[in-house]
């Protein structure tokens, strides 16, 4: 009989097998996600779906029709708020948008948009800056269900109070309620905000450069990635941005272990607001060109 293995070691094997099954069978690659949060989410799913073990969860995913959708849901970036961290949106409004105004066409990429709260926040900012008509927002996520929710733009009315406060703190000049209609316990953001938004599937782990962007927003997504994957994604953002284009990350994200950070300069480091360097740094593919 083999020597007993501590539960925690056994669990690591089970998580690895789960990740491997998800990748080989369905093409979703979580192998470079940082293990602590990933393991926590897998455990949670195991409990929610009343599985006795992670292996049982894996079996269900492999054998049961569309159960994988639930799994993807459980592993996705969670819900955000409109104008979350208002000082960030205030700075985008006051310092970044006036500079983007010099471009005839403005492309914004919100990577990992989840249920879309920040996408609509951006649309409102652009509208109030008078730039929306010549802007296009690409809102991407690998989670099809989240994208669908983002596209619908319907949210619980109970969240609107906090979001209104955020909006005002972010320098909003109107009332947030002028951008949505309330019905029963829900609010729905106006169709005109959706006009120049494309919601589309993109996986930061496996997909490539997506558009030529002037501003990339990706907040609290990379915190779930390993250092290597974080760095690769940062390089992907660099290659998607025009020179001098802007990058906005989550407030507590750290780039200390990402060599690709050298290709950006901080506009406001405390707000995690960066700009792609105007001149190529040594490591960039077109440095020699």
């Amino acid at each position: 009989m083999p020597a007993p293995l501590p539960d925690i070691e056994l669990e690591r094997i089970e998580v690895d097998l789960f990740v491997s099954a998800l990748k080989r069978r369905f093409g979703f690659d979580f192998s470079e996600y940082a293990p602590a949060s990933l393991t926590r989410r897998v455990r949670q799913m195991m409990h929610v779906h009343h599985c006795d073990s992670i292996t049982a969860l894996t079996a269900r995913m492999l054998h049961e029709g569309d159960f994988v959708n639930e799994v993807v849901q459980g592993l996705s970036v969670p819900v955000s708020e409109m104008f979350r961290d208002p000082p960030v949106f205030r700075t985008l409004r006051e310092q970044v948008l006036p500079l983007l105004a010099s471009y005839p066409r403005i492309n914004v990429w919100q990577a990992g948009c989840a249920s879309g709260q920040e996408v609509y926040s951006l649309a409102i900012l652009l509208q109030e800056a008078g730039l929306y008509e010549r802007s296009h927002i690409f809102a991407t996520d690998f989670n099809a269900a989240a994208l669908k929710r983002a596209q619908e733009g319907i949210y619980p009315a109970k969240d609107a109070q906090l979001w209104s406060r955020n909006y005002i703190e972010a320098g909003g000049s109107q009332s947030l309620s002028s951008y949505y209609s309330a019905r029963y316990d829900f609010i729905r953001l106006h169709e005109r905000l959706r006009q120049n938004i494309t919601f589309t599937n993109h996986n930061l782990v496996t997909d490539k450069v997506f558009c030529e962007a002037h501003l990339v927003l990706c907040r609290n997504v990379l915190i779930y990635f390993s250092n290597e994957l974080q760095n690769r994604t940062l390089a992907l953002f660099r290659d998607s941005l025009v020179r001098g284009g802007y990058l906005c990350l989550g407030l507590r994200e750290s780039l200390d272990f990402a060599p690709a950070a050298a290709d950006f300069t901080a506009i406001d480091a405390s707000l995690r607001l960066y700009r792609r360097k105007l001149h190529p740094a040594s490591g960039e593919p077109d440095a020699a060109a």
Partner: peptide, 21 residues
């Protein structure tokens, strides 16, 4: 732990943050 984030540790004893529920 910073406000607004869950604080976790990776096995190599480095910090990780999460905005899970």
């Amino acid at each position: 732990a910073p406000a607004g984030y869950h604080l976790l540790l990776e096995n190599d004893r480095h910090f990780a943050l999460s905005v899970d529920e």
